[in-house]
């Protein structure tokens, strides 16, 4: 059995003539926290979307959790996402007319069965036990991001993807979110792929890869924080 949760070989993604991701060979061991850095248009979000089964590559191979994503149908990819992946978005993307707890329960509903007690526990773990019935519009940016984290972890994913999860947060909230993620990762042992512009945020990971113009240009191991 492969020790890697993610393995890519010559992974490519083109949009017409534009090559967003040039052939990439990447292995991510299970449990690793990998930070992906690069400028805008460097291909980091493209990589994250491919690994998360949100997009399809135009070339190469892509194995995630032993699953060949290229062979999956649309519904197969949806099943893969709900069973295997948790996603934290920069813009939070919470459903505005649902409360915090309902936003978390929605992920449970698509996965299996909504369980209010479990959803409450997830929100308590991210420190929002007192904001269960509040709608996203009534929460601060940091709180919304924590609801997003609770939603991402509610189905115990093996892989947590973060697309600039602290991009819209102030320094204090950023630290709070990163500490929370570190703590949850320690408990849940999921693998983290985090796309970021921020060197400080990237430093929370075990390893950082740098992309430029769709190519892997540099890789560095980080010291534990």
């Amino acid at each position: 059995m492969s020790p890697y949760i993610i393995e890519t070989g010559g992974l490519t993604r083109s949009y017409g003539d534009i090559c967003a991701l040039k052939p990439l060979d990447l292995q991510v061991p299970e449990g690793e926290w990998l930070s992906v850095m690069g400028h805008s248009g460097s291909g980091k979000s493209t990589l994250m979307n491919l690994v998360g089964g949100l997009d399809r590559p135009t070339g190469g191979t892509l194995q995630v959790g032993g699953e060949n994503l290229l062979a999956l149908t649309e519904d197969g990819l949806a099943r893969f996402r709900r069973n295997f992946v948790g996603i934290i978005f920069q813009q939070h993307h919470l459903v505005p007319y649902l409360t915090a707890i309902e936003n978390v329960m929605m992920a449970q509903y698509f996965h299996s069965m909504p369980d209010e007690a479990e959803a409450r526990h997830a929100l308590e773990r991210v420190g929002l036990g007192h904001r269960l019935k509040n709608r996203p519009g009534e929460l601060s940016g940091g709180e919304q991001q924590r609801v997003c984290i609770a939603r991402a972890i509610i189905n115990s994913p093996k892989l947590l993807l973060g697309d600039e999860p602290t991009g819209n947060l102030d320094h204090k909230s950023t630290i709070m979110v990163m500490e929370l993620l570190k703590e949850l990762r320690g408990e849940e042992r999921f693998t983290v792929i985090m796309v970021t512009h921020n060197q400080d945020v990237a430093a929370w990971g075990d390893r950082t890869i740098h992309l430029d113009d769709g190519m892997l240009v540099r890789e560095e191991r980080m010291n534990c924080q």
Binding site: A78, R81, R82, V85, I87, M106, F110
Partner: peptide, 14 residues
């Protein structure tokens, strides 16, 4: 955006 989010977190066509 709401539908895209549902799909992103694992909702299938059904």
């Amino acid at each position: 955006p709401e539908i895209a989010l549902m799909k992103a977190i694992g909702a299938d066509r059904y």
